[in-house]
Design a protein around this nucleic acid. Sequence first.
DNA 1: TGTACATCAGTGAACGCGCGTTCACTGATGTAC
DNA 2: TGTACATCAGTGAACGCGCGTTCACTGATGTAC
Lengths: 207, 207
Amino acid sequence: MARIAKKSGAYHHGDLRRVLLETAVRVVEHEGLSALSLQALSKRAGVSSGAPYHHFESREQLLAAIAEQGFQLLTAEMKRCAALAGRDAASELRGLGEGYLRFALAHRGHFRVMFRPELQDHLSKSCAAPGEDSFDMLRASVQRCQAEGLARPGDPMPLVLVAWAGVHGASTLWIDGSLGSKRMVPSEDILVDMVARTLVELITGKR
Amino acid sequence: MARIAKKSGAYHHGDLRRVLLETAVRVVEHEGLSALSLQALSKRAGVSSGAPYHHFESREQLLAAIAEQGFQLLTAEMKRCAALAGRDAASELRGLGEGYLRFALAHRGHFRVMFRPELQDHLSKSCAAPGEDSFDMLRASVQRCQAEGLARPGDPMPLVLVAWAGVHGASTLWIDGSLGSKRMVPSEDILVDMVARTLVELITGKR
DNA sequence: TGTACATCAGTGAACGCGCGTTCACTGATGTAC
DNA sequence: TGTACATCAGTGAACGCGCGTTCACTGATGTAC
């Protein structure tokens, strides 16, 4: 917002870091991570090829920044959906699942970067604990279901793991296009609802 | 087996296609898909950089061949584990889930390639219906559970989707190292057992 | 069984290309006095 | 308020590199007679 459209040749963009991140996320979303090059990115953002290096040490650091942002957005969306879904334990759990799915489908660029294996090492240092927040929310919610007698008692971990894997797997399959030929899920909204609802029904034993 | 170790300078390898596929799978498994280059692959296989083009039209076609092989191995492993698990409907379903997980963890190279989004278009033409076989097995097994009154009646699709997403998500998270920091799954074998067992217990309503 | 030849699957140098990154530079902005 | 200067964030050419792919070639194998 500092300055938007001064003539070309400007030596102070003012908002380049944000623009680079946004553009990169769009490229990853539409063309995949391997199609993201800093040179092409710079061109799209309207700056020279050296400019990004004033904001990111390397391509890898730019990806790490995207991932970090992604994990924050994920947590936020899960909180938002959980609050929206209702106050009882089952609704809360369903909301968290919906939030995970909605985030993944709405921010595919972020999502693709966040779980790249080659970034995991790097990530677990920069983000103190990537995804730990959202994972903890899920676990707490499952435990609440157990405490209220909705879910089976005992070790919550198998339930948490299945819930996490379920929403993650559904997101991955949909985003990667592997569900396309399975003619079972007509739309994103139905996918989100179906997966989150079914998972909670199974966990809380509702028949 | 045709010939193994004739001196260098040989103009007939005899088994190059298979060696290239195996080597490529190993590279993808240990260094990721983006680290797979045909030039490096040729060097590892001990042939010149032009040799692979007598067996594959392009890098993409080599990947497609890996994926196709992967889907066949996946189906085979699911069948094998299902047969091993037992004859009743619940055991069969658990076996199929175990098979999916075991395949994914034992053949990470294949698994990574099979679900790459950039290959999906290409795949759905070459493999008639990639993953359709294994998906159908899962669906049939869920339907059998329904028919025998073990799973809730009605549309099987939500249950199939959750089962598929569950095993796929768990595989992906483990392989990509995203479960590493979640200190909940100590080993591969326990992961396989925990996910497959829990999914079946939830679907069949066992408490 | 021996010879002529087509075919097949190798070789290895070469191509153009795009990549991540560097660097000497430039000029706009902010600060001290 | 005006001037000198440090700093910050741009430029754009250049680097070396590895990539996918091509191509003229070579020699081993299989086949016909």
